[in-house]
Computed example of a mutant assay.
Amino acid sequence: MKVFKKIMNAVVAVEKFILVISTLLILILTVGNVFSRKVIHRSWSFTEELVVAVFVLVTLMAAALACREGELVNLSLVTDRLPEKMKKPSVILSTILCVIFTAILFRFGMDKVLTQLANGKRTFVLNWPEWIFWSFVPIGSGCMILHFIEFCIDFCTDKNKKEDK
């Protein structure tokens, strides 16, 4: 279990690094484009393409980190009123459903990446391969699956430790 936690902590460190770099990239591109439009009177046409793609990555990575804390999909209106014995099964059921949904997202994301690779389709402005941007979907959903499972394990083992004492 300690090895799994170390691996997941390393994954989180990489995710946080990606989030910081991606957010800075969005900030620099957006502010730079506004400055360029207002001062130089020339728009950076590539910024919209890049910012939208990187925003997808930021959204999915942030959602994955939220999954780690059990904060992404959580309707506590019902689960808070459950008896203590029912909380663990409800978390397990919720995890199973979330992993199924995210696995479907991963599958469709991978299908799109493979289709883009086969077609050789490129972006309109930058002329980059589209599969690069579509790869953010399976990467983010893969991280979400890992963190859903991690949260469920943490929740179930913490409850067991508290009940044993």
Results as ranks from 00 to 15, higher is better:
Met1Gly: 10
Lys2Gln: 11
Lys6Tyr: 09
Ile7His: 05
Ile7Phe: 14
Asn9Cys: 06
Val12His: 05
Glu15Arg: 06
Phe17Leu: 15
Phe17Lys: 04
Thr23Ala: 12
Leu25Ala: 14
Ile28Trp: 08
Leu29His: 05
Thr30Phe: 08
Val31Gly: 07
Val39Gln: 01
His41Gly: 09
Ser45Cys: 02
Val54Pro: 05
Met61Glu: 00
Glu71Cys: 05
Val73Asn: 03
Val73Gln: 01
Asn74His: 13
Leu75Arg: 14
Ser76Glu: 12
Arg81Val: 03
Pro83Ile: 05
Glu84Ser: 13
Glu84Thr: 11
Pro89Tyr: 03
Val91Pro: 05
Ile92Tyr: 06
Thr95Pro: 08
Phe101Tyr: 09
Leu105Asp: 00
Phe108Val: 11
Gly109Leu: 01
Val113Gly: 07
Gln116Asp: 14
Ala118Gly: 07
Asn119Phe: 12
Asn119Cys: 05
Lys121Leu: 05
Leu126Phe: 04
Asn127Tyr: 07
Asn127Arg: 12
Trp134Asp: 08
Phe136Leu: 10
Val137Leu: 10
Pro138Thr: 01
Gly140Thr: 04
Met144Glu: 01
Ile145His: 06
Leu146Phe: 10
His147Leu: 01
His147Tyr: 15
Phe148Ala: 03
Ile149Trp: 07
Cys152Glu: 05
Ile153Tyr: 14
Lys161Tyr: 09
Lys162Gln: 13
Lys162Ile: 11
Glu163Gln: 13
Lys165Asn: 08
